[in-house]
Design a binder for these strands. Structure first.
Lengths: 247, 247
DNA sequence: TTTTAGTCGACTGCCTACAGCATACCGTCC
DNA sequence: GGACGGTATGCTGTAGGCAGTCGACTAAAA
């Protein structure tokens, strides 16, 4: 038996190589954005990020471009990169797209998922419920993402899964505040979703997923309604205040 | 009246700026791939492309990364970039996703599109039919893309439109051979689609679009069935034969 | 006081250079 | 004859540097 065949499981292979600097930078910047250290509309100066992360400008540039492709930052040619400002309208549209993609995923997953897949779903669901019960919002959100990602994987359509993952990453940005509000209800829905998938009932799985994501969407919109819109921080190139040399 | 308000039309603004080198390089490489000058699986050496296009490696690198994000090339860390090898399975999945996105777009467009939108659709449709009648396959494919893009735009969901555009760009790669086969039938379907959108009939618009994209998909799969798969050119780093210095 | 021209500063875009690494080739040992 | 280790090669990943360009600030004119 060849060594490469031994690992039938996907994740088993590949030692966690330090990867390229670019990928590390991408994750670091995403983290900075999600955590709010980089505010929407803020001008991202390459050299500053480079210094902050202890790398040169090149990996930062490449990271910013990739992040631009995924909708995290806006790239204005000749001006630089700005943290994307998520409008209410856009969030609504994004969540609508997520509903579309995940509903289809759930339908397909109900048709394709095997025993093993269902088992993994149940395990994730248990972890999520545990997280909610111990009030660990971050863990709950993370597990939620993992669960949804697994559903899209089980759909058997790799392209669909990849696209859904891309959308989900963006959704996650605004997802944290909602999670606290939705709490346990969300995980009950997950449980019935898994039941439907296990039963191979495509119709029901699709319907549950649609309702589920729509609940999240409604919850988010409701939440946002309350906080009045920020005073539209137009993306303008920040400028370091002129050094008051001698005065 | 402000000057910027004068141009109500979208395309009217923006002088065709020389754009960044990166964007030019992206388009150039896409063209090289679509035209077949760069074959699937081929190792893309940055320095060679740089020399070929008359630029330095930096813009080429950035272009390759963006193209990787859009599925044109595969980036193997530490090894370089390879032209993506489109498998039959992946094409099927990609077309399935396109069906999903465009069907939803058509449904929304039927609800949102105004008179002006319908008029523009009709204009594009006429152009496409003219292209088919004069046997200009390239123009027909281009117009087809424009028409579908316009439908997604008219859906009113920008996120959906952007995602559909991304998928459509990839689809277009394998679309040309199909277009010749489908010919006129495709444009008859477009016409009825526009009729449904004009009538505001969401159900019918969605159904027509679904059937339409599924026809394209079936046509493509049928076409591919005939040509036996290539002997799997595993993506290996090409190496220039050692210079037989003195012999 | 409002508009307009001019200047300065800083950042982006691109190029060049270097270090590390992965692969292919080749001789040697079992 | 086949497997293994050494060596060479050329590519990628990263760093640093320079010129072009955009925006902001200042001062002068209407």
């Amino acid at each position: 038996m060849l060594l490469s065949d031994q690992a039938g499981q996907t994740a088993a292979a590949k030692i966690p190589r330090p990867a390229t600097l670019r990928e590390s930078v991408i994750e670091a910047i995403q983290e900075l954005i999600v955590s709010g250290q980089l505010k929407p509309g803020q001008h991202l100066v390459e050299s500053e990020l480079a210094e902050l992360l202890g790398v040169s400008r090149q990996p930062v540039r490449e990271a910013l471009q990739q992040l631009s492709g995924e909708g995290w930052v806006d790239l204005h040619p000749g001006q630089g990169a700005f943290v994307h400002v998520p409008t209410l309208e856009e969030a609504d549209q994004l969540l609508a797209v997520r509903t579309l993609l995940e509903t289809e995923s759930a339908r397909l997953a109900a048709g394709h998922a095997g025993e093993d897949g269902v088992k993994r779903l149940r395990a994730l669901c248990a972890r999520g419920i545990a997280a909610v019960q111990s009030d660990d919002v971050d863990a709950a959100v993370a597990t939620n993402s993992e669960l949804h990602a697994l559903v899209t994987d089980l759909s058997g359509n790799k392209v669909l899964a990849e696209l859904a993952a891309q959308v989900a990453r963006r959704v996650r940005w605004y997802h944290t505040p909602v999670a606290r509000q939705r709490g346990m209800a969300s995980w009950d829905e997950h449980t019935s979703l898994i039941d439907a998938i296990e039963a191979g009932d495509e119709q029901r799985a699709a319907k549950i997923m649609r309702d589920h994501t729509e609940h999240t969407r409604a919850s988010y919109m409701e939440q946002r309604e309350n906080e009045p819109a920020e005073p539209a921080p137009k993306p303008v190139r920040r400028r370091r205040p002129r050094t008051p040399s001698a005065s």
